[in-house]
């Protein structure tokens, strides 16, 4: 930990989360550093959602500690986490299709311009910043008034990511951003993740697609039945090994041989 650049910005140690008798997370350890993309893989029901929600302040862990920039922290609400710099882009995106890209981009944080005693939304600034940020991400909008509904799924993901980055996210949690996308759009989102990472932001990329993870990930952690099965660095693990870990080992091997290795 001598090199501060590579010190983890978020470090979660032995996190447990119980919902009544259900143990959703049973001792999960995870950390992410600025400028890296740490992929969290897991099958449905592995505890990914609970884990994200614990990290982003929605749930409080039953046991375990979370360190943010080296200090222990307890977020009381997602808003606290957002203010600290942990932004989550959920699968359903939190975009409103009928509203323009600008209105969506600035929703909840609209820039304001004073005219005498009145305060108006500063549309000139809002539009210019939106166009500029979208261009940085490689999307040329027809107009900032364009409704989000007219964008493709991948472009919507990119708007959500650009928004989080612009508003100062230090940690970006992406909840299955590629799961509902086509091949081309997935490639676009993955390249967006790459751009964000190169900008020095810590990216937590949640997915159950091994190929998507390997395309951009620096480290990989597999979650299975509420536990982490270790973290591997890029180049230390093969897609097959990751796939096996996700599925819980043995059964998958058997299944895979019977399907001829196509899973």
């Amino acid at each position: 930990m001598s090199d501060t650049v590579h010190a983890p910005i978020v470090e979660m140690k032995d996190i447990e989360k119980h919902f009544g008798p259900v143990i959703a997370l049973n001792g999960v350890s995870f950390d992410v550093r600025p400028g890296e993309c740490h992929c969290l893989l897991g099958d449905n029901g592995a505890g990914k959602s609970t884990f994200i929600k614990t990290m982003s302040g929605v749930h409080k862990p039953t046991r375990g500690t979370i360190l943010f920039e080296g200090k222990e922290m307890r977020f009381d609400s997602p808003r606290d986490a957002m203010i600290a710099g942990i932004a989550t882009v959920y699968q359903d995106l939190a975009m409103i299709p009928l509203m323009s890209v600008t209105r969506n981009f600035w929703m909840g944080r609209e820039p304001v311009r004073r005219v005498g005693p009145f305060r108006f939304m500063d549309f000139r600034k809002a539009n210019d910043v939106t166009m500029e940020e979208m261009r940085k991400m490689g999307i040329n909008l027809r107009s900032p008034d364009q409704a989000v509904g007219t964008l493709s799924g991948g472009e919507r993901q990119t708007v959500a990511i650009a928004r989080a980055v612009y508003f100062g996210a230090k940690v970006l949690i992406l909840d299955e951003p590629t799961s509902a996308l086509g091949v081309r759009q997935t490639a676009n989102v993955l390249s967006t993740i790459d751009k964000v990472r190169k900008g020095g932001i810590a990216v937590v990329f949640i997915t159950h697609n091994v190929r998507h993870a390997l395309a951009v990930g620096d480290r990989f952690t597999v979650l299975n039945r509420g536990k982490t099965l270790g973290t591997a660095k890029r180049g230390q693990i093969t897609p097959e090994e990751l796939q096996d870990l996700m599925a819980g080992g043995q059964e998958m091997v058997a299944l895979e041989s019977s399907l001829g290795g196509t899973v």
Partner: peptide
């Protein structure tokens, strides 16, 4: 105005609007 944007957002998708405060 900003409040106007909140009115649109509240009606467009209340949950999405809550996510961003």
């Amino acid at each position: 105005t900003r409040f106007g944007n909140w009115i649109f957002a509240s009606g467009g998708d209340a949950q999405a609007a809550r996510y961003v405060g």
